[in-house]
């Protein structure tokens, strides 16, 4: 087809590619970690990262040299949401179908939980995994990735005030789960 034979823009992309590679490979752990916490399934998390890398290649033209980690994580986050939605939809299609091929692992039953770990840590992890996704992502980005409110707002596409109240709700829920919180409203 015609678009295959068009002249290649050439030099610019050759110069940009190593840069993109750097961004991705440098922040791959963070990207995978976020995907893991968002989708709660190691296999799907790998798919999310691979897909996000592909999207990143396409969107790299819009990368303005800002913080590469936040840029990549925004793509990972959006990809995770898309794939979760697709999986949910696929699940709906299969509902009532006797030989469903969709294999949805129980998020509370990951093998990592079976490892010998302190009960408290396991309970905390379960409580975090059980949070609504929009609260969970804020807390993971803050506590595990140690990003600023501004970066979290950029990645999740909400105002800073929303980030703050989501963080508060997430922490409140975890403190209740830990039994540490006072019984105030």
């Amino acid at each position: 087809m015609k678009w295959r034979g068009r002249p290649q823009p050439g030099r610019r992309e050759d110069a940009a590619r190593p840069e993109f590679e750097d961004v991705v490979l440098t922040h791959l752990d963070a990207a995978y970690g976020l995907a893991r916490w968002l989708v709660r399934d190691p296999n799907l998390a790998e798919d999310v990262v691979q897909e996000a890398v592909l999207r990143g290649i396409n969107y790299f033209a819009s990368f303005r040299g800002e913080d590469g980690r936040a840029w990549l994580m925004r793509i990972v986050r959006n990809t995770a949401y898309t794939m979760l939605a697709a999986r949910q939809q696929a699940g709906r299609i299969e509902a009532g179908d006797s030989d469903a091929v969709l294999d949805v692992p129980d998020p509370d039953d990951g093998p990592e939980l079976a490892l010998s770990r302190q009960d408290d840590a396991a309970r905390l992890e379960r409580a975090l995994a059980a949070l609504p996704i929009e609260l969970r992502e804020c807390l993971v980005l803050k506590e595990i990735e140690e990003l600023s409110y501004k970066e979290i707002a950029h990645i999740t596409g909400v105002p800073i005030g929303t980030v703050m109240s989501r963080l508060w709700r997430a922490r409140r829920a975890l403190m209740v789960a830990e039994g540490a919180a006072d019984d105030e409203q």
Binding site: L25, L28, D29, W37, V49, Q50, Q118, E125, I144
Partner: peptide
């Protein structure tokens, strides 16, 4: 949270797959 939550590093095969893809 910072002490006890697992840090999920990208598995080596994922890193290699991404590298190959790039």
């Amino acid at each position: 949270l910072r002490d006890t939550l697992p840090k999920h590093s990208a598995p080596e095969h994922l890193r290699q797959a991404v590298r190959a893809r790039l």
